[in-house]
Design a protein around this nucleic acid. Structure first.
Length: 638
RNA sequence: GUCCCCAUAGCUCAACGGACAGAGCAGAGGUUUCCUAAACCUCCGAUGGAGGUUCAAUUCCUCCUGGGGACACCA
């Protein structure tokens, strides 16, 4: 349990009713919902606490029972000691009224807390590469990052969504070479799919390059076969190690493998050389290089913005890697003069072997910069200019070591942002055939997934006759459902797990899915509309609550609503939106149970009817708030 | 070779070290004169292996097996 939560458990003045119950027990232990078969609402196991205070378990339980009973709390029905458990039954009329009242009072703010106290957190997210189509993998970073930003906002932080575009690097040299050799600029400008054209050029470049390399390999091979691997200069240590590993695992003859690796290392293509030269020209501000580069960026951003608009994701800043180009000299200087880095084999490196983090290169031996240089500059910029105290990088798990290195270097340079920053990694998206690869043309395109999602949602919506739905509204509903389903696929499970892409799973429209939760919201909204009650008003008669919320389904629903604020807190502190998604599913499920078993508008007793309408209103509000954090909307009809 | 993730039902996923391991899909059966059946109910079904720590282990530690990833001039 976090220290944060422990502190909250002791505060009697908490605004959230469940926390007040926990505070009344006064031992800093969280309440858990009792399992169904136990006839109680909440329980705590006092074993650990008894040990700590050197008391008998039973003795402590009795002590706490007495304390609770002496408090004469109106929300408390009874306390039952069962083994090491202290179980509480609540007076649900009173407790439920307090919970619902709180929800209706706070409205869209229900669940919020000011943990962050305005602390600025930069969220490094989405980060697609210019001139490449967005693949399904980019979706993960985008929507997990967006959900995290919303979570931090709800907890009183000040998130900055930063789209760290991949708009710089050697690949632009390659791309320029490809455009010049095989491209047709007027056609490119008018193409309906300019990124596709650019990407094809990029793929062509790689294919040709590989072919050239293969040709070189044949000639190199001749020399090698005559003179042997021992004659090869410059075999890097990494290749030697990898080779040994392969030999051990697959038992391939030593000499042959070394030859293969050496050939790969030595064979350089002319295209490769040309690409490197063009990137150098770009770095030096060559007008032609700059013009082509800028053209690629403009075409790409138009495409990306369409996707972001469909997903409903907005960025606070979109500072690509190129933005940090003129800020790199300072970083390199800082690394050098601080003594954190040293020269090695001509490159500027930081040795972190003492921490088991190996060696990271900050500047190449030819003086060029790389990813690490740009990320260091970026972190320092966020700290100094944006006032960020913390950065969260939503990037794939294959870069775990890299980010550990980045944070360690920042720490060594004495920048506090290095201490606080986190790499929220997500498992890579794989296809049944293997890892996705742009170069091999083996990807799931985000726009295809979105399109398929729209088709499926449209089909399921079918021709249900919603009299209020005009065609324009219908397409909005279809989009809300499809995007919801897509987001849920990522946010509904622990992002760390690698996923094998599956159409049916990615666009699930029933069961544990966004549409399920959205549907519960739609049902709730329609009850409220039919009831004609102003749901914004919180005007419970708190003195006359006897007999309200007496059914199991009402009690269960109230408990789920009462537990919502703590779930938001947990989801944020663990950087895991799936905790929130799981809770929303639980609320929706309990709402559906309630919906199926309990009449609302048709309730005879006006007092009971009013209480149920308010329970429906509170349910809708919580579902709405939670889905909003996940970036999912509730349609007007489904 | 070193390091990092992961392993739960036929499949996809849950479970702050705590009560009889929960869902969804698939399979079998049921529920619409009643606030939308994208819903609800019933049944069937699981912690990779061996040790250890603990009052208590799916959860923590060690080893093994099986997947994925990383390890100097890519991003």
């Amino acid at each position: 349990m976090s220290a944060e939560r422990e502190a909250r458990l002791m505060r009697q003045d908490e605004k959230y009713p469940l926390r007040r119950v926990e505070a009344a027990i006064g031992v800093g232990l969280p309440l858990a919902e009792a399992p169904k078969r136990i006839k109680a609402d909440y329980g705590i196991n006092v074993t650990t606490l008894a040990r700590q205070s050197e008391m008998e378990v039973a003795e402590l339980a009795r002590l706490l029972e007495t304390r609770l009973l002496e408090g004469a709390y109106p929300w408390l029905n009874s306390v039952v000691i069962q083994g090491p458990f202290l179980n509480l039954k609540l007076e649900m009329g009173v407790f439920g009224t307090e919970v619902i009242d709180q929800v209706l009072k706070m409205g869209g703010d229900y669940g919020e807390e000011n943990i962050g106290k305005g602390k600025i957190v930069a969220i490094d997210m989405s980060s697609p590469n210019i001139a490449k189509r967005m693949s399904y993998g980019h979706l993960r970073s985008t929507i997990i990052g967006d959900a995290l930003a919303n979570l931090y906002k709800a907890q009183g932080y000040e998130p900055i969504r930063d789209n760290h575009l991949g708009d710089w690097g050697t690949q632009f040299g390659n791309l320029i070479v490809a455009i010049k050799k095989w491209g047709n600029e007027p056609e490119l400008m008018e193409s309906s799919d300019p990124i596709g054209v650019l990407q094809d050029l990029y793929v062509k470049f790689h294919t040709r390059m590989e072919a050239e390399k293969d040709a070189h390999k044949i000639s190199i091979k001749k020399v090698l076969i005559e003179e042997g691997a021992a004659a090869i200069p410059g075999l890097s240590e990494a290749i030697r190690r990898r080779t040994q590993d392969l030999i051990k695992k697959k038992k391939i003859p030593d000499e042959k493998l070394i030859i293969e690796d050496a050939i790969n290392q030595l064979a350089e293509s002319d295209l490769e050389t040309e690409g490197r030269e063009w990137f150098l020209r770009l770095e030096q501000g060559d007008p032609e290089a700059k013009r082509l580069w800028k053209m690629c960026i403009n075409m790409s951003m138009r495409e990306f913005d369409k996707v972001y608009s469909t997903l409903g994701v907005k960025f606070d800043v979109s500072l690509g890697e190129s933005f940090y180009e003129d800020k790199m000299a300072g970083v390199i200087d800082e690394v050098r003069t601080s003594g954190v880095g040293r020269q090695s084999e001509g490159a500027l490196v930081v040795d972190m072997n003492d921490k088991g983090l190996g060696v990271a290169i900050v500047q190449k031996s030819d003086g060029a910069t790389l990813y690490m240089t740009r990320d260091l500059a970026c972190a320092l910029y966020r700290e100094a200019k944006m006032g960020a105290k913390k950065a969260i990088y939503v990037v794939g798990e294959d870069q775990q070591l890299y980010f550990k290195q980045l944070f360690e270097i920042l720490k060594r340079l004495g920048h506090p942002i290095g201490e606080e920053s986190e790499h929220v990694y997500f498992g890579l998206v794989r296809l049944a055939e293997g890892k996705m690869s742009t170069r091999r043309g083996r990807t799931i395109l985000l726009k295809d997934v979105i399109e398929e999602g729209l088709n499926r949602a449209d089909k399921v919506l079918g021709d249900r006759n919603h009299e209020r739905v005009d065609p324009e509204m219908r397409s909005k509903i279809v989009r809300q459902i499809a995007v919801g389903a897509l987001k849920w696929n990522d946010l509904g499970q622990d992002p760390r797990k690698p996923i094998v892409f599956d159409w049916d799973k990615a666009l699930k429209l029933e069961g544990c899915s966004a549409p399920y939760v959205q549907y519960a919201g739609v049902r709730a909204r329609h009850i409220l509309e039919a009831s004609g009650v102003d749901i914004k008003v919180s005007n419970f008669d708190t003195k006359n609550t006897a007999g309200l919320f007496a059914s199991e389904s009402e009690k269960d629903l109230i408990k789920a609503i009462a537990g919502y604020p703590e779930t938001v807190a947990e989801a944020r502190s663990s950087n895991n939106p799936s905790r929130l998604a799981a809770h929303l599913y639980e609320i929706a499920k309990r709402f559906n149970l309630f919906y199926n078993s309990t009449p609302v508008i048709r309730t005879e007793d006006p007092r009971l009817k009013e209480s149920r309408i308010k329970l429906v209103a509170a349910s809708l509000q919580v579902i709405f708030n939670g889905l909003a954090i996940l970036g999912i909307e509730i349609p007007v009809a489904m």
